[in-house]
Structures are given as C-alpha cells and as structure tokens.
Computed example of a mutant assay.
Amino acid sequence: MEHQKALERVVARLADTMPTIGLRNPKIGGEGDRWHFCNPGDWVISFHSGQLWLAYQLTGDVAFRNAAQARRPDFRYILEHRKVRDHDLGFQFSLHSVADWQMTGDREARAMALEAAGLLLARFREEGGYIQAWNPTGTVDRDRAAYVNGRMIADCIQNLALLYWAHRETAIEDFRIVADAHAETSRRYLVREDGTSFHTYLFDPASGAPLKGQTHQGYRDGSCWSRGQAWLLHGFAQCHAATGNAAYLETARALAAATERLMGDATVPVWDFSVPDNEPRPLDSSAGAIMSAGLYILAAALEGAEAQRWRRLADRLLDGLLDQCDLTTVPDAQGLLAHGAAHVRAGQTDAMLPYGDYYFMEALMRSLGHTRFFW
C-alpha cells in the first residue's frame, strides 16, 4: 500500500510541475530542490520524458502524452548533430521515441528510434567487441580524445535495449549481434570474479587488446562505484529479459549477490562501496533506485526462495529511498528524490537527479506488478 501511495504522489508531482518545467529537461537539482536544465544533446535529456510516458500509461491523461511528444525537436537535434551523439543514444531514444511508438503508434517516433539505433550500431568497435563510449575525436582537447579512445563504460549496458528493440522491429541481425557482443565483452571485462565491477575498461584502440579496468567517477580504479554496479545489475537483468540468454542471468545474479554483500545493513548505497569509513561517504539515491528496479527484473526471472531473496532486497532498497530520500511529500520540491550523487569527484553531490527519479518511478511500478516499460 505504501508503494502505491508513493507512486500516486509521483504522478501528482509530475502533473504539478508540468507548467513550471515546460519544455525544458531537468539535469540536476539545485538550491531549494529546484531543477537546473539540460543543454541540447545532454545524455540525461530523456529521463523526464520517460517519467511522463509512464504517467500517461498509468493515467491515460493526454497532458502527459502531449508534454512528452512536444519534446521531439530535442531528439531530432541529436539525430542531426553528430558532435552531441555518443553511446547514450539508447537512454535517450528508448525513453522518448520508443516509448512514443509503443504508447501511440506514431510512425515518426518509430523512424527516429530506428535511426538512433543505426547510429548506436555504428559506434561498435569490431576489434575489441564493444561500443565506444565517448567521442575520441577533435583537435581542441587531445588529452581528452586520447583518454576516451578505446574505452567502454558500465553505463552503456543500459543502452543495448535500443538495439534489441530495433532487432525485434526489423529482424536485422546486426542489431542483435552487436548488442550481444557488447554484453559479452562487458561480462568478461567490467564484471569481476567476485561480482563487483569496474566503471570503465580500456582496450588498445588499434588491436582491440584488453588493457586495464579503471574508473572515471568512482573512488579509485579498483573500487566499486555504486551507480556503475547498478547500471550493470539492471542492464544484465534487462538483457536476459530481452534475449533469454542464461549467461546474462548468471551475471545479474552475481552482481546482485555482490550488491547484497556490499550493502550490509544499509538501505541507501553510498556513492562508492570502497570508500574508507574515515572519508566522506555521500549517499547516491540514484544508484539505489536503479538497483531496486533491476532486482525486481531479476526476481521476475527466477522462482522460489531466490526470487524472494532478490525481491526482498529490492523492497529494502526502495523502502530506504522512501525513508531517507523521498521528496514527494515536500511541497516545493520539483523532483522526486534527494541525496543523488551525480559526480562526487567533481563536487556534484546531494542533489536531485532525473535518472534517479526515473528509476524510482520504475521501481515503484515494478514493485506493484507493472510489466510494461520501454526497454
């Protein structure tokens, strides 16, 4: 009952803030729990659209549909400007254009999503078997280009859903082949033997030879950044749901077991599980939301005691968010969750985050038995 009440508050918050947010796309929370908004092409641009589409699904209120569809020019901009495109095309177009197609049958939305899937496909590095993360091009910042070239990151596992969807829509095998190849490379190199994970992995850009695991946002190269762990847990559970591949299920189980061990008695994860107790350990509500949603997917793929185990952990994480981070009862807040850690090493902590809000809504819905999503 508490989860249902919380979901109703989420939908009410989205309706109440619609006139204030307008056609802008939230990026990160600021003072007074007010949003700062995205620049064109930002990787987080779709998470508010995803919430609007879920609200439309729940209520049938056309105001949510219209608000989501009115953002279409923002996504057309991404398709038309190559310099803003990277591996996050799946995040962007699954939660906007695929959602639109599934909810309304709009043919332009389908065409945009398929175009985005083709652009994501083109980022595949055959020599290493992975989708290139950020863009290793340009002459302005050569150090940045050198750093990103040959690099995959944990976040990209979430973007494979767009490729699996495109394969189902078109029967073009390349979409499935590339998604499977990237998932297999992620399984081999990002997920450690103990079920913890690297944030990034570097390959030789020319030969594809694996070089080393590193971090970009975590505490150190050998640590376990909690949101990276969450991306992989949700992502592999999602990949298994899309394909039935048993290896993906086993990987999701290993990630879940490590997450359970690392969480201990906590109910909201810290930003990196490896940070010593004597150093600052800000929470990351977004990691908790992603983990919870992923654990519900994992539990749905299993039976008996193991399914109950992961559902209990999902419930514990979701209840932790409701106990410690819930802003839906704070009248003037524009978002849903407090205590998100966008990029701790860059000083971005204790903020509302649109991806935390989206996965919070998804987790609430999954906890209540909803099964229709846009992944």
Score class of each variant (00 low, 15 high):
348 Q>C: 05
253 R>P: 12
355 Y>M: 07
300 A>K: 11
64 F>D: 01
146 A>H: 09
181 A>L: 07
170 T>F: 09
238 Q>N: 13
227 R>Y: 00
31 E>T: 11
29 G>D: 10
36 H>F: 08
244 G>A: 01
205 P>L: 12
169 E>W: 07
304 G>R: 02
94 S>I: 03
159 N>C: 03
345 R>F: 04
31 E>R: 13
130 Y>G: 08
341 A>P: 09
153 I>K: 08
194 D>N: 15
45 I>T: 10
133 A>M: 10
136 P>N: 09
164 Y>T: 02
55 A>W: 06
365 M>R: 15
338 A>H: 09
244 G>V: 02
22 G>A: 07
221 D>F: 07
261 R>T: 12
85 R>T: 07
244 G>I: 00
121 L>A: 10
145 A>P: 00
125 R>E: 15
179 A>H: 05
320 G>E: 04
361 M>P: 00
75 F>G: 00
323 D>I: 04
365 M>V: 01
116 A>W: 05
248 Y>W: 03
274 S>D: 13
1 M>I: 05
355 Y>P: 01
37 F>L: 07
358 Y>N: 03
217 Q>N: 11
109 A>V: 08
259 T>S: 13
368 L>R: 02
265 D>E: 12
166 A>L: 08
56 Y>M: 05
82 R>C: 05
214 Q>Y: 13
89 L>H: 03
253 R>K: 12
33 D>E: 13
26 P>R: 02
66 N>Q: 14
23 L>K: 08
101 W>G: 02
326 D>G: 01
297 I>D: 08
137 T>F: 15
107 R>Q: 13
4 Q>Y: 06
263 M>Q: 02
122 A>W: 00
186 S>E: 06
103 M>R: 14
95 L>N: 11
326 D>W: 14
77 Y>T: 10
320 G>N: 01
271 W>K: 06
340 G>Q: 11
95 L>F: 14
312 R>G: 05
130 Y>P: 02
243 T>Y: 03
19 P>W: 11
50 G>H: 08
95 L>M: 10
96 H>D: 11
30 G>H: 03
242 A>V: 02
282 P>Y: 09
125 R>V: 05
367 S>Y: 04
218 G>P: 03
187 R>A: 10
54 L>E: 14
139 T>G: 15
232 L>Q: 05
179 A>K: 04
373 F>C: 01
282 P>Q: 11
255 L>P: 00
47 F>E: 10
271 W>T: 12
288 G>E: 09
116 A>D: 14
115 E>C: 09
242 A>S: 04
317 L>T: 04
219 Y>Q: 04
100 D>Y: 04
167 H>N: 08
194 D>E: 12
152 M>N: 13
7 L>T: 01
112 M>K: 00
108 E>V: 14
189 Y>F: 15
158 Q>V: 08
5 K>G: 12
18 M>L: 15
3 H>D: 07
338 A>D: 14
355 Y>F: 15
209 A>G: 09
171 A>T: 09
127 E>K: 15
8 E>V: 10
300 A>Q: 08
73 P>F: 14
173 E>R: 11
298 L>K: 01
220 R>T: 10
44 V>Y: 01
104 T>K: 02
73 P>G: 10
265 D>V: 13
